[in-house]
């Protein structure tokens, strides 16, 4: 049954991918990328990877689509036709596909208990998580504690992307100062004059943000954690920006606060690691944070997830505002 679902979803994925490549309307392509991400999320869910599914749905299908649309508002709706080098790229794609298909022949069967991935450290993680960390969600334990270095690296990737996007996009921050004169037109921005989206949006925003916090702090017990929660809270605030106008949203969370969120989140994560050293353990060793090593692990994971959530939320909002602040060229 699972195989049937998976094959169905994968077929839809391939169809969507082909449609994305073939369409010349970039708006359609953006919508199809959203559908692609949602199908991917469903696929992850069928494979019991609820955490990854939640991330894919929140970031891939949600925020990325909004960011793509923001970018699209600055450019043309139709793809420029490029004819040079088509055969070369076609050749590269065909060769890569053949190599990948060849590589799958060595792949163990889906769910094979003898697969290398199930014989290395995974059994140890599954076995020791209740004893060492004492939380039900092993994914959070692996992500936050056992593989804390990797997650720190991921957070700094987000951080670097944030810096890169700001360097490329934000040249005209001064536009948002109230003295600029554009602030008076803030009522024209957004959907303020459309009653139904406004009312429903206002009704939903608190619940979206609340759900974000739930995903953040429930990550030790169920699917969730900092990355997903940051994206969901950012989605709530982006909805607010769409409804009330971007200027209004920047009043709620001003650019320095966004900067502080990204930097602060990353620093918070690093600080937990250094606190481990100061208290006599290794870097990112949470066991020394409290008298009881298990409690220490839980405190550490809670704080680093908070750092991840704050940083991701700040980075996504900054990128959104960076796109929204640009005039169409």
């Amino acid at each position: 049954m699972v195989i049937l679902f998976a094959v169905f979803l994968l077929t839809l994925l391939v169809l969507t991918a082909v449609a994305i490549v073939r369409t010349e309307n970039l708006f359609v392509a953006v919508m199809l990328t959203g559908i692609f991400s949602l199908l991917m999320a469903a696929n992850f869910f069928v494979l019991d990877a609820a955490d990854v599914a939640l991330t894919e749905a929140a970031i891939g299908a949600g925020i990325t689509t909004v960011l793509f649309l923001g970018a699209l508002a600055l450019t043309a709706e139709h793809e420029k036709s490029v004819s040079a080098g088509r055969w070369l790229s076609m050749g590269v794609v065909i060769v890569t596909t053949l190599v990948l298909i060849y590589a799958t022949f060595d792949k163990p069967r889906l769910g094979d208990p003898q697969a290398p991935v199930h014989l290395h450290v995974a059994p140890w993680y599954l076995d020791k998580t209740p004893e060492i960390i004492g939380i039900p969600n092993v994914v959070t334990a692996v992500l936050g504690s056992f593989r804390g270095y990797d997650t720190l690296g991921e957070l700094f990737v987000v951080f670097t992307a944030f810096i890169g996007v700001l360097f490329i996009l934000s040249g005209r921050r001064g536009r948002h100062l109230p003295s600029n004169g554009r602030a008076s037109s803030s009522t024209d921005q957004g959907l303020g004059h459309h009653l139904i989206p406004k009312v429903v949006g206002r009704l939903l925003i608190p619940f979206i943000v609340l759900f974000g916090f739930y995903v953040q702090f429930h990550g030790e017990y169920g699917p969730g954690g900092g990355f997903q929660a940051g994206a969901i809270v950012a989605a709530g605030i982006i909805l607010y920006a769409l409804l009330e106008g971007e200027t209004q949203a920047l009043k709620v969370v001003p650019p320095p606060a966004l900067m502080g969120m990204v930097v602060g989140g990353a620093v918070l994560y690093g600080a937990v690691g250094i606190a481990g050293i100061v208290l006599g353990g290794n870097f990112l060793d949470y066991s020394v944070l409290a008298d009881n090593p298990v409690t220490g692990q839980q405190i550490g994971i809670l704080i680093i997830e908070l750092g991840v959530g704050i940083a991701v939320c700040g980075a996504l909002l900054s990128i959104f505002h960076a796109f929204a602040a640009r005039e169409p060229s």
Binding site: L191, I196, P197, V200, L204, F207
Partner: peptide
Amino acid sequence: AFLLLTGPTASYALAN
């Protein structure tokens, strides 16, 4: 409840 709120709103926004 979420779907019943968002679905019609999205349709309204699209048609509008």
